[in-house]
């Protein structure tokens, strides 16, 4: 039962990173638009993200609900120790979700307010991505205190440091990469914009390698170093190597303009990186100052887990068909038709 629930957490996390991540990344890309394609880029992102952004973000709520119902000690420890980065993330989520909608539905479209929305959307997307990375890194640093008196030890040490900061940048980089790859396929009606996204994808592709190296380097200063753990675990190491080698496949696929293949390869890379991370840390949910808290330790009573699983299975049966319908309706058609 625990395994099945952990599978749902992992699946939700993966989908959140792939789908929600492209959404965050699209926001960040608006901070660095193509010079002569600023309006067209905005338009493309509106069209591509508008119908799906709300659904893309519910994966996060799903993770929160599974944690607090199924693994309450994990949830509460995170919410106490990572109070500050959680709040930072929430502010970002509130601002970017509302501003994105406001930009589209503002009845009077004039340059000043539109520019303000775009700027806020981009900035809050970067901000949220960064804090998501910080939170992810802090789960397994071994700095979440079991008992702490001093403010610094209880509320700052868990997430302060070069390593979480580097993961914040790495995650932002991944999101930009995913968004660029996704938007290549969404801009088929504009050759030059498509070319622009292809360049962005290549650039962020290189950036991720450097940011990944930065993460490994920063982790050397940690009690538990991600770098040594990755290298020490054959499967994790293999996943990392395959993910890196796949860059070649990605570049070939991009240059041959294979949209779907490019998306699959890019997602595959992200899946491999997450897989490596997961294989090292499973079955640990978080690592505290006094050692690991596993999903088994933290699991709620059987009766609760059963109900949670029923809800998730039935929920999936309802959600996936409707999601597939959503994606089919809005798969790229090349028309620039808007809701209005």
């Amino acid at each position: 039962m625990v395994e099945a629930l952990v599978f749902f957490i992992a699946a939700s996390l993966l989908l959140y990173i792939l789908l929600g991540g492209s959404d965050f990344g699209a926001g960040i890309l608006e901070l660095i638009p193509a010079k002569d394609r600023r309006e067209k880029q905005k338009h493309t992102i509106n069209r591509a993200m508008g119908p799906v952004w709300e659904a893309n973000h519910i994966w996060l709520i799903l993770i929160v609900v599974i944690l607090f119902m199924g693994f309450p000690p994990v949830f509460t420890k995170l919410m106490v120790a990572l109070h500050i980065p959680m709040i930072a993330l929430l502010v970002g989520i509130v601002v970017r979700g509302t501003v994105f909608t406001f930009r589209h539905y503002d009845a009077i479209q004039e340059p000043v307010s539109q520019r303000a929305y775009t700027w806020l959307f981009g900035l809050s997307s970067l901000w949220s991505s960064y804090w998501l990375g910080v939170i992810a890194a802090s789960l397994t640093r071994g700095t979440i205190p079991v008992r702490a008196e001093a403010f610094q030890e209880a509320y700052l040490d868990p997430w302060l440091g070069w390593y979480p900061a580097s993961v914040g940048l790495f995650v932002s980089g991944i999101f930009c990469f995913l968004a660029s790859v996704f938007l290549i396929g969404e801009s088929r009606d504009d050759e030059r914009l498509q070319e622009h996204f292809r360049h962005r994808a290549a650039a962020f592709n290189v950036a991720i390698i450097f940011l990944g190296a930065l993460v490994f380097f920063a982790s050397l200063g940690e009690q538990r170093s991600l770098a040594t753990e990755f290298i020490g675990h054959p499967l994790a190491l293999a996943a990392m190597i395959v993910a890196t080698v796949l860059f070649v496949a990605l570049w070939v696929s991009m240059s041959r303009e294979k949209v779907m293949l490019t998306r699959i390869v890019a997602s595959g890379q992200v899946v491999l990186i997450l897989f490596g991370w997961w294989i090292i840390y499973r079955p640990n949910a978080i690592i505290t100052t006094e050692g690991a808290l596993t999903f088994y330790d933290a699991a709620a009573p059987e009766a609760t887990l059963r109900q949670l699983l029923i809800a998730l299975v039935v929920g999936s049966l309802l959600i996936f068909p409707s999601l597939i319908f959503l994606l089919r309706v809005f798969k790229f058609t090349g028309s620039s038709e808007e809701s209005e």
């Binding site: 599974i66 949670l308 959600i319």
Partner: peptide
């Protein structure tokens, strides 16, 4: 947590439907 897990499902469908 149970009503919250069902609420999550309902909200998900709502978000898809509104899109």
């Amino acid at each position: 947590g149970m009503p919250f897990s069902w609420e999550g499902t309902a909200f998900f469908i709502e978000a898809v439907a509104i899109g």
